[in-house]
Simulated assay, not measured.
Amino acid sequence: MVGLCNTRESDDLQLLMRDLLLQHQSDAAILTVPLRHSAAAIARRWLDRVPLMTVNRRVSSQRLVSFHLDNVLAGRLAARHLVALGHRQIGFVGGRPSASTDADRLSGVRAALRVRGLTLRPRHRIDGEFICRSGYNAATRMLGEAERPTAVVCADDHIALGVTGATLDLGPRILEDPAVVGFDDGQAASLRRMPLTTVRQPVAEMGRSVYQLDRIDRIGGRSGHPVEVVLAPTLVVRRTCGADGKWRGHRPAPRTAGRAGSAVGSGGR
């Protein structure tokens, strides 16, 4: 039997689904978007009974298989690109701080800024949810300031699409200023009126890795060490920053253009 549960990014629902699945004597479980607090509680109770795997987000555990993007490096790629275009005032619109993806991407952005002697101002960071409306509300607030950021890194594409929507509604004067970068490279990122610059995560590769079930044999008490599969991100440059080579007279480094934008390999750390 295969069970599918939607916990709507809720700690309480994740814990409730944990108990229900255990009651139904599930043979194994895959958590696709665990939150840090509830996932730790799930791991403590679950791993004594059945194998557990996390996908997309990481959880600290001694006996856990985890598949996720190198989100710290992804944050660095986004921030490095914006700094290379000449941006110095960069904002960050996050999702839920309890999600490892949000925390790691923010950490990468801060690390890249720090290398260049820059900082992320507290008023240029706003947390919310991983939805368009959250990005829209955050951009309306952030871009309405006298000293607004000239570029915004968003914790995922949904937030970024909300931010670009807000720039369109705020008018031409605002539209000329903020560059926007998201994460994931979902289908909508390349189809909107303003194709989105984003950091792609290899979803298909992640899915194939998850179904290599021989990895499950290494958890549930069969191994004393965690198994962590970390996938490399790729920066995809489109119109929201850098694809046309225009921003305040700065020229981005030459890139090989594709139909939907330019792809920049992640390289090393």
Rank of each mutant, 00 (worst) to 15 (best):
I30W: 03
L13N: 05
R215E: 08
Y136N: 10
V237T: 04
V153H: 01
G3H: 12
V237W: 03
G75I: 02
R173L: 10
F92D: 06
V109C: 13
K246E: 12
G249T: 03
L120H: 06
A138Y: 08
A160Y: 00
E176H: 08
R215G: 10
P51G: 13
H225D: 14
L106E: 15
F130Q: 11
D70Y: 04
G94I: 01
V33P: 03
D157T: 05
G261Y: 00
V59T: 15
V203P: 02
D27W: 14
N6K: 00
G207L: 07
S209D: 11
A188Y: 03
T197F: 01
N56K: 08
H87D: 00
V152N: 00
P254L: 07
A43M: 12
A29P: 04
H37K: 15
R215C: 04
K246A: 11
Q23D: 15
G108E: 06
L69M: 07
G261I: 07
A40P: 08
A204L: 13
P233G: 04
A146H: 10
T164D: 05
Q187P: 11
V210S: 10
G258P: 02
D185V: 00
I219V: 15
L47M: 15
G171W: 07
R248E: 14
T54P: 03
S10F: 13
D157I: 05
W46L: 05
S60H: 14
A78D: 08
T7L: 09
E9N: 12
L64G: 11
F67G: 02
G221M: 11
L20V: 13
L82C: 03
V153C: 07
L73D: 05
R114I: 01
I30K: 04
F183H: 11
I90W: 02
V55I: 13
P195M: 01
D157V: 01
I90Y: 01
V72L: 07
T167Q: 09
A29R: 05
G108K: 04
P195N: 04
E228I: 09
L31P: 00
Y211G: 01
D244V: 03
A29T: 15
A243V: 04
I131H: 14
V264P: 02
R44K: 14
L64N: 09
A179H: 01
A78S: 13
Q201C: 07
I42K: 02
G249C: 01
A103K: 12
V203E: 05
A146L: 12
L20I: 09
P172M: 09
L21Y: 11
N6R: 08
L82F: 06
C5N: 10
V227D: 11
S61Q: 12
R76P: 00
R222N: 15
R123K: 10
D214F: 00
R36F: 10
L113F: 04
P122I: 08
A40K: 14
R173H: 09
G117F: 09
R110T: 06
L85E: 00
G94S: 10
A243G: 07
G221N: 12
R45C: 02
L4W: 09
A138N: 07
A166D: 10
F130W: 11
P172V: 05
A139K: 03
N71E: 15
D157P: 03
L69Y: 03
M206V: 12
I131D: 15
S60Q: 13
T197A: 02
A111C: 03
T240P: 06
V163T: 06
E228R: 14
I30H: 01
D217I: 05
R251E: 09
R105F: 02
V152S: 02
I126K: 09
A166R: 01
C5M: 14
I216K: 06
L52Q: 14
V163Q: 00
